[in-house]
């Protein structure tokens, strides 16, 4: 029986590999708060990843941090009074043309209370980050 010629197999696999390398963006910051987003069936996709800044709210995974809802931004907890400055800094780091299109994706746990969410929204308004999105699953 003639053997199957496998000499082109590496090329094949490499091309798949390059495809994945291109479409991949590394899974960003590891969540340090537990977030289980609520369900909604009217969700829309967020346009452009590079315009989106993500903020998480949930109970900390580390139980030593207590069981109060906390805000996470870029691998670290974010205090409510630093939100405005942090968001302004985040916008500064974007390309100038993209700044007005900046969008905040809020990944919030379904068991959160609205108190912290409303406070965050107020801070975002102060930081002129007006485009927001409530992350939800279908």
């Amino acid at each position: 029986m003639p053997e199957l010629n496998t000499s082109s197999l590496p090329d094949l696999v490499f091309s798949i590999l390059f495809f994945f390398m291109c479409v991949t963006h590394m899974r960003e910051d590891t969540p340090i708060v537990k977030v289980n987003t609520p369900r909604a069936d009217q969700v829309t996709k967020l346009e452009n990843k590079s315009l989106v800044t993500t903020v998480l709210i949930g109970k900390p995974r580390d139980t030593r941090r207590g069981s109060e809802d906390l805000i996470q931004f870029n691998d670290d907890f974010l205090d409510m009074k630093n939100v405005q400055a942090t968001m302004e800094a985040a916008r500064e780091s974007m390309k100038e043309a993209d700044r007005p299109k900046m969008q905040i994706s809020m990944k919030i746990d379904r068991n959160c209370k609205m108190g912290i969410v409303t406070e965050l929204k107020q801070e975002l308004r102060k930081a002129q980050c007006l485009k927001i999105s409530y992350a939800a699953k279908k």
Binding site: A40, K45, L46, L130, I132, S133, Y134, A135, K137
Partner: peptide, 11 residues
Amino acid sequence: DEGLARLLPRW
């Protein structure tokens, strides 16, 4: 990411 997009009022 998917979500409900909103526009906040100006501060």
